[in-house]
Computed example of a mutant assay.
Amino acid sequence: MSIGQGAGTPAPVRDGIPLGRIAGVPVYLAYSWFIIAALIVVFFGPLVGRSFPFLGAGAYAVALGYAILLLVSVLIHELAHALTAKAYRWPTAKIVLTLWGGHTQFGQVRSTPGPSLLVALAGPAANFLLAGAGWLLLLAAPLPPVAVLLTEILIWANLLVAIFNILPGLPLDGGRIVESAVWKATGSQDRGTVAAGYAGRIIALALAAAVILPPYLRQESPDLQVVLLTAVVSGFLWMGAGASISNARVRLRLPSISAAALMTPAVSVPAASPVAVARELLAGRPGTALVITAPTGQPWAIADQDALAQVPEQLAMSTQIDAVARPLGPGAYVPAAAAGSELVDYLAKLQGSEYAVIDRDGGVVGLLTQAAVLNAIAAKPNRPRSS
Rank of each mutant, 00 (worst) to 15 (best):
F128C: 04
G192E: 10
A181N: 08
A372G: 02
L39H: 07
R385L: 12
S268D: 08
S318F: 08
E342F: 11
R110E: 13
A339T: 00
D322S: 12
G240C: 05
V269R: 11
R21S: 12
I3Y: 05
M1Q: 06
F164N: 14
G175M: 04
R21I: 00
A332W: 13
L229V: 11
A59H: 00
A289C: 08
F164Y: 12
G187V: 08
G114Y: 03
V148H: 10
S180I: 02
V311N: 00
V364N: 04
S273D: 11
T264G: 03
G352H: 06
L254G: 03
Y355C: 09
Q225D: 03
V41I: 14
A63C: 06
L29A: 06
R201K: 14
A38S: 15
V13H: 09
Q219M: 14
L254C: 05
A243C: 04
V357E: 03
P299M: 14
R21H: 15
A278M: 05
Q370M: 11
P381E: 01
A120H: 02
A379L: 02
A271P: 00
F54W: 04
A38N: 13
A122H: 06
L172Q: 11
R191F: 09
G297P: 07
A147S: 14
L47H: 13
V324H: 00
A131M: 07
G287H: 09
G20W: 03
V41Q: 01
I17P: 12
I177T: 13
V72M: 10
V233S: 03
T9Y: 05
L207V: 14
A125K: 02
A210G: 13
A196L: 07
G340R: 07
W183I: 01
A122S: 07
I377A: 03
I36N: 00
S246K: 15
S116L: 02
L374G: 06
R385I: 07
A332I: 09
P255F: 08
R249M: 15
Q351A: 14
F43N: 10
P124W: 07
S116Q: 07
P255R: 02
S387A: 08
L136Q: 02
G197N: 04
L213W: 04
L343E: 10
A259K: 07
L118P: 00
V227R: 00
G114E: 02
A248Y: 05
I76S: 06
A59F: 11
S268L: 13
V74F: 07
E78Y: 08
V27D: 04
A23I: 01
L29V: 05
R285A: 04
A243K: 10
I36F: 05
